[in-house]
């Protein structure tokens, strides 16, 4: 567990995507954050609810999910440390999707009324939050393209690239090795692929020397080739100073 405070996790993320200064950082530090730990596969927010909090991911992996009327699950995006997946709940009162933990996770809840009054008084923070939800939307666009139009091999490589890139951007990993204790079934729900095909694609990526896996650890051994295989261009992540 990283020793940094939950405010630091939030601030670090906002710094990677926006221009916030000392004054704003002090204000962000004053936001009360209620930390809570959850096991994997826990629904943090459900469709139809009217939350009065938004949460920042402090550790672990969160997925936004939707279910078809037949009960099939589609994971529509991943969220990592520093992200505020349900920030749109600040303005859209009824939640239109679920947010669930995909791995054991720690999240920090922030009251909407507190966030609203901060946004009213600090336009730079309001802009940073706006930017954060805009980038979330860009990730959803990329996700639709990935699931709808890319072949399974490219699709799998792309999602691994995105996860590793985002974990690096917020300082969660130093290299291209990430501990991703996510089930193949969840990967299948994210990619719109059967579990059998998820296994085959991981096997193909290993055979081609792009990744190595040990338990839940995923090592992108050849990052340039993995990004090429995954049709991965970081523009849509809108980082101020991309690490790669």
């Amino acid at each position: 567990m990283s020793p940094t405070s939950s405010s630091d996790v939030l601030i670090r993320k906002l710094e990677t995507i926006s221009e916030i200064r000392e004054a704003e950082i002090a204000v962000l530090k004053s936001i009360p954050i209620q930390e809570k730990d959850f096991s994997a596969n826990h629904d943090l927010v459900r469709e139809g609810e009217r939350p009065v909090y938004s949460f920042v991911v402090l550790d672990g992996l969160i997925g936004s999910t939707k279910y078809t009327s037949e009960g099939k699950r589609q994971i529509t995006s991943f969220f990592v440390a520093g992200d505020i997946p349900d920030l749109h709940g600040l303005h859209l009162s009824v939640m239109d999707c679920n947010f669930s933990t995909l791995t054991p996770a720690r999240v920090g809840f922030m009251r909407h009324d507190v966030l609203r009054s901060i946004c009213d008084q600090h336009p730079r923070i309001a802009a940073a939050f706006w930017r954060s939800t805009l980038i979330d939307a860009a990730m959803y666009r990329e996700w639709v393209t990935n699931v709808g139009r890319r072949e399974a091999y490219t699709r799998m490589a792309h999602i691994l690239c995105e996860l590793i890139f985002r974990l690096r951007a917020v300082g969660r990993i130093e290299d291209h090795i990430a501990d991703i204790p996510i089930t193949q079934a969840a990967l299948g729900d994210a990619l719109g692929l059967s579990t059998v095909h998820v296994n085959r694609m991981l096997q193909e990526l290993r055979r081609d020397g792009l990744i190595a896996t040990t338990g839940t650890r995923m090592h992108a051994i050849d990052w340039p080739r993995l990004t090429h295989a995954g049709d991965f261009d970081t523009t849509y992540l809108h980082q101020k100073n991309p690490a790669d």
Partner: peptide, 23 residues
């Protein structure tokens, strides 16, 4: 397949296999 899939019986094996064949 070096990873495998947990299944609760032959019927599930067949369903999982069929979904894999479609992909």
């Amino acid at each position: 397949d070096e990873i495998g899939v947990e299944c609760g019986g032959l019927e599930e094996v067949r369903r999982v296999g069929f979904e894999g064949l479609i992909d």
